[in-house]
Structure formats: structure tokens, C-alpha cells
């Protein structure tokens, strides 16, 4: 009988390869469950989960909520726009007030890096990080690995290029950790201004040319241009970004092999990826969304099994 080495999922860097494998194997079973005529199991009947989103989210929040409901947990969700945070309440106070209502697990998204880690040290509940600033987004990396494994058989030995705004991307950082732990090779590609200065220290190489990067890789993970995080100008304009780093069907057809195209969403159609690529047969974007529910069910199930009565 295997169990996770941690009581919280704060980031990929806090877990080990066995944990990743256990989560992905458990997700296999849940993927089968969510394709049944009745897509629900009763495991978490006595668990209550709060989803606290201090930052906007559609996909992740819905995916977590659905995963929790498929496991029969009681779920409450709120976003900061409607909460007392706007009235000046501190994070710990907000969460402790929620926990006073007998909540066992908190799924949180926050704009500050380390917010989930901070919370895990100050409140008594199992914490799942659903994105903390530009730090980590572990469930996204896990569902990306799950999708790669599903499409290509395994992650080990595969070559993955992450294209776009690496500097502000928690998806990129979590993916780099997760892919390397599973034995994949990672390159990053994008405007020099959006690549962290010390990226090499993570064991990742930088390839400034998109075509060369695509020729090298098995999987291209196209990140969104996060206009809301670009406080100063990192590249002249979106048109120039698209010309250099936008993925089109023409580029894909000129490659001498078929690669897998991923995108964590939401897509800026026509910016980092054209519509025909997003909807084409290279794209696994909607598989990622489906797998997201299965992977989050696995994470929540495995963490919940460590909560003692």
C-alpha cells in the first residue's frame, strides 16, 4: 500500500518521483471513473473542502470543484471579489474562520509566491496549491505529465519545449520540476526578456529560435502571453511576438515529424497559437482539461486519505 510522502501539495519541488507516479497511477483509475455512465464515487463523503481563489480562474476552479464533487466531498468555493479580504481581513484570519466551520482541506490560489506554503505552516488543514503567483501550479504540471504519458507512453526520455513567458509562469516552473524528476529533457523558448536570467541553473537550456526548438522536441507546451502580468514592455508588440513565437499549422506541417501541442489555457487565439493549431490534430488541449479532473481527483483522494479522524 503506497501513500504520499506529504500532507499538502504545495509544489512539485516538495514531492518526490514516487509521489508523482502514485498520483498519475491513481489518476488512471479516476479517468476510468469519470468515463462511466455515473461518474461519481462515494470515497470522500465525510470530507469538506474549501476552494479559496484570490485570483481569477475558470478552468482550474471548475476542475477542482468537479473533481471534489465526483469524489462526493462537500465543497464550498469563494473568490476574493465577494469576500471579507476586501474589507482588510488577513489571509490566516480568513482561512481560520473557514476552518472553524470544520473544513478538512483548502485549495488555494493566491497572487503571492509562497502563499500556500505560508498557510500550511499556520493552519490545521491539508493545503493544495492551485497557483501561487509566479511560483508553482503543481496540479497543472501533473496533468501535463499525465497527458504526455497518455499520448507518448511515458515521460522519461522525452524532449519537451516550453514556449513563451517563462519569467512569470508558474506553469513553466512546476512543469520543469515535474518533467525533470521523471527523466525528461526540457528546453525553454521565448523572447530573451521573458526568460529568467538563471534558467540554466535549473538544468534547462534556452533556445531562442522557435523552429529549432520544435525540430528538437516531442512535445511543445505553448504558454499564454500573460498581459496582466506584463507591467513593463518585454517585447515591442503582440504582432512581433506572434511572428517570432506564434505556432501556426504551416510551421507544424514543415516539421519532419509529428509533435504534440499543449497549452495550459486560456488561449489567446492568434497570439501564441493559431486557431487551426488549437483545434487541429496535433493539439491535446481538451485532453489536458479532461485529464485535469482525473489528476485532481487523485491528488485530493490521496491527500484526504492522510487526514486522520
Amino acid at each position: 500500500m503506497k501513500e504520499l510522502s506529504v500532507n499538502h501539495l504545495l509544489g512539485i519541488k516538495y514531492i518526490n518521483t514516487n509521489d508523482i507516479n502514485l498520483i498519475l497511477e491513481t489518476a488512471d483509475q479516476f479517468k476510468e471513473v469519470i468515463n462511466r455512465p455515473i461518474k461519481k464515487v462515494p470515497s470522500l463523503r465525510d470530507i469538506t473542502i474549501a476552494n479559496i481563489f484570490f485570483e481569477n480562474s475558470t478552468r482550474t476552479k471548475l476542475s477542482f470543484e468537479l473533481a471534489q464533487k465526483r469524489l462526493s466531498a462537500d465543497v464550498m468555493s469563494f473568490s476574493s471579489a465577494q469576500s471579507s479580504v476586501k474589507k482588510g481581513e488577513t489571509l490566516i484570519d480568513t482561512v481560520n474562520n473557514i476552518l472553524a466551520m470544520k473544513v478538512d482541506m483548502v485549495v488555494m490560489r493566491h497572487s503571492s509566491p509562497g502563499a500556500a506554503h505560508f498557510l500550511s505552516q499556520h493552519v490545521k488543514a491539508s493545503i493544495v496549491n492551485a497557483g501561487d503567483g509566479a511560483h508553482e501550479h503543481p496540479t497543472q504540471a501533473l496533468l501535463d505529465s499525465y497527458t504526455i504519458r497518455e499520448k507518448l507512453g511515458e515521460v522519461a526520455g522525452k524532449k519537451i519545449v516550453i514556449v513563451g513567458d517563462i519569467l512569470h509562469s508558474r506553469v513553466a516552473l512546476s512543469n520543469i520540476f515535474a518533467l525533470q524528476m521523471q527523466g525528461a529533457e526540457v528546453k525553454v523558448c521565448g523572447p530573451k526578456t521573458l526568460i529568467p536570467q538563471y534558467i540554466n541553473s535549473l538544468g534547462v537550456t534556452y533556445e531562442p529560435n522557435l523552429i529549432k526548438a520544435l525540430e528538437w522536441c516531442d512535445v511543445a507546451n505553448m504558454l499564454r502571453v500573460q498581459n496582466e502580468r506584463l507591467d513593463v514592455s518585454y517585447f515591442p508588440n503582440t504582432r512581433e511576438y506572434t511572428q517570432q513565437f506564434g505556432l501556426t499549422n504551416e510551421i507544424l506541417n514543415n516539421l519532419n515529424k509529428k509533435i504534440v501541442v499543449m497549452h495550459p489555457g486560456p488561449i489567446n487565439r492568434g497570439v501564441e497559437i493559431t486557431s487551426d493549431v488549437a483545434d487541429g490534430n496535433h493539439s491535446v488541449i481538451l485532453d489536458q482539461v479532461e485529464n485535469g479532473v482525473a489528476v485532481r481527483m487523485a491528488v485530493i483522494y490521496l491527500l484526504a486519505s492522510k487526514i486522520k479522524n
Partner: peptide
């Protein structure tokens, strides 16, 4: 579920 020492493997 959660009443046993170790979690169950699916």
C-alpha cells in the same frame, strides 16, 4: 476509507 492505517491502492 480513512479508518485504516494505510490507504488503499486502487
Amino acid at each position: 476509507f480513512r479508518r485504516n492505517e494505510k490507504p488503499f491502492e486502487a
